[in-house]
Design a protein around this nucleic acid. Sequence first.
DNA 1: CGGGCGAATGTTACCGATATCAAGACATCG
DNA 2: CGATGTCTTGATATCGGTAACATTCGCCCG
Lengths: 319, 319
Amino acid sequence: MADLAKLAGVSKITVSRALGDSPLVTSETRERIQALARKHGYKLNLSARNLRLRRSHTVAVIVEMKPSSGRTMWDPYPLSLLGGISQELTSAGYSVLLTTRHDAGNAAVRAADGLILLGQGVHQDAVKLYDRLGLPMVVWGAESAHDSHVVVGSDNRQGGASVAERFLSIGRRHPVFIGNSDHPEMAQRLHGFVDELAGHGIKPLLLRRVDWTLESGVEAVRSLTRRKVRFDAIFACSDLLAMGAIRALVELGFTVPNDVSVVGYDDTPHGAGFLPPLSTVRQNWQEGGMLLARKVLALIDGQPVASQMLPTNLVVRAT
Amino acid sequence: MADLAKLAGVSKITVSRALGDSPLVTSETRERIQALARKHGYKLNLSARNLRLRRSHTVAVIVEMKPSSGRTMWDPYPLSLLGGISQELTSAGYSVLLTTRHDAGNAAVRAADGLILLGQGVHQDAVKLYDRLGLPMVVWGAESAHDSHVVVGSDNRQGGASVAERFLSIGRRHPVFIGNSDHPEMAQRLHGFVDELAGHGIKPLLLRRVDWTLESGVEAVRSLTRRKVRFDAIFACSDLLAMGAIRALVELGFTVPNDVSVVGYDDTPHGAGFLPPLSTVRQNWQEGGMLLARKVLALIDGQPVASQMLPTNLVVRAT
DNA sequence: CGGGCGAATGTTACCGATATCAAGACATCG
DNA sequence: CGATGTCTTGATATCGGTAACATTCGCCCG
């Protein structure tokens, strides 16, 4: 910047102002200096600016990823969520710092202007951990009554309710829920499901499964038949679970959807390609990401921000 | 740091040295100062350090994402790749800056110490664009003879060849390839496939499909039967294509794998849950990510670095 | 006993930007 | 015509670290 100043025959500060589109400089000098900057490939030094401005223009996104192997990040938090976040933040001039949960104390994270937490649903303690940093923070997941974070998520309650509605409307009377009610988001799906059914005097069977894997779905259905339970509809908390369930059903001689209706959750492309094509509840992740980003930015800006749930919609395919 | 210095009764620089584990300070003072820092919750200011050190300790990861909607990032570049990158970089003290292709000129990207490009396979021009920044750069994808970037990818050639081998070993003689040979990675899968078959005097039918969607797979198979082509094996370049193909085959009255063998690519969890479970070629993304990270770090370090292809392996399931 | 050497710590300058306050040029006004 | 105000630009200090060079001190050795 000093060099540019010399070239333009002005002082450093004038260059700074010109490049920052400050109204304090004549439009003439501004343009002259900007042209000069372009010509010489001048690059602003972000560290210097951040140092002086005492902010980092960075939002840290903390993703829950089991480190090596295990559950990959395939299922619950697809990249489109990250895509939405990234798109929105960078277009606001912010950088996106990606970290996993395990470098919590990371200096770079602490230096961020704001935090977005993804996939912390299971670990409320993790949320508290980051809370201590005292940074503007937005969490993806389910809203819970007794804590005060800003939460963005899809309306899991409504998602569950819409499945119940569908089951009722096609005459199903013995529904089963497969999922993990300890997980806040899943618990809400369950609540929506149960409440809607309760309105019609029906109480679903709850089948608790911790894993979201295919095998888990298979096993769930097998256990149902082992216990000789009567059922005609399954609401699985993820597409993978649903696919596992269908697989087991077919193996056991049931037909889908004639004997048993099955609905999954997430609307993964692979679910759509399943045979038969899976009915499922869709969440709009891209938009969720954009919303998350906008909320942190608002918080950083000091504006009041409220939690928000995005609507979901039931995609009825062949199951 | 100045405050800490006052508290400890030493100078700033001694504090700096103590916290940086420099051998220039007595272990006694070092520990005293470190304890003091912990006690008072001292936080290093990264901007200041980066400014002084003239480096950002940051690697930018540039991801090809269609902005709004369209193909989400589900299919080709799963999060586990990012996970591997992030894990490796942060444990080396680096930050991961996530950006999409569309904020190319981004000041933060230019300030990074290194670049990792993901999903640029289709856009060789994008690679050149970033090349101009003159930063250490590593690209995920297929190695091509006529450019000089450091490339990490999975061995698509070998992947294709292994499918061919399998087809031959089970007596298939009329194989079809579905994919987009303009895409470098896919082209190599095709080459591996074709070369291996050629060794046995067989020439596969090439069915060019640009999209990696389910519908595209369906359509591909329909066009085959419309043209009354004889075929007994399909190698699809993605699991989704394969699932679409199978779906169409079943609709058209073929049985899989009796009439037609089908193999996909990527080993997605959903492919494994498909009915019937999909045979596919697996790539180890997590490891790919870690390798990418290690290579950029080595480049930043000034060490010589070579491209590297990771082995793939064929997972034979029911198709 | 003084010069020399090494270990521990300190002084000063600097990285590259921006905020604050000051100053010069020029127009307006009583 | 001098006072006042507006517009544009500049000098200086500062953000929080670290490198280079300087200093102090104790010890060894001839």
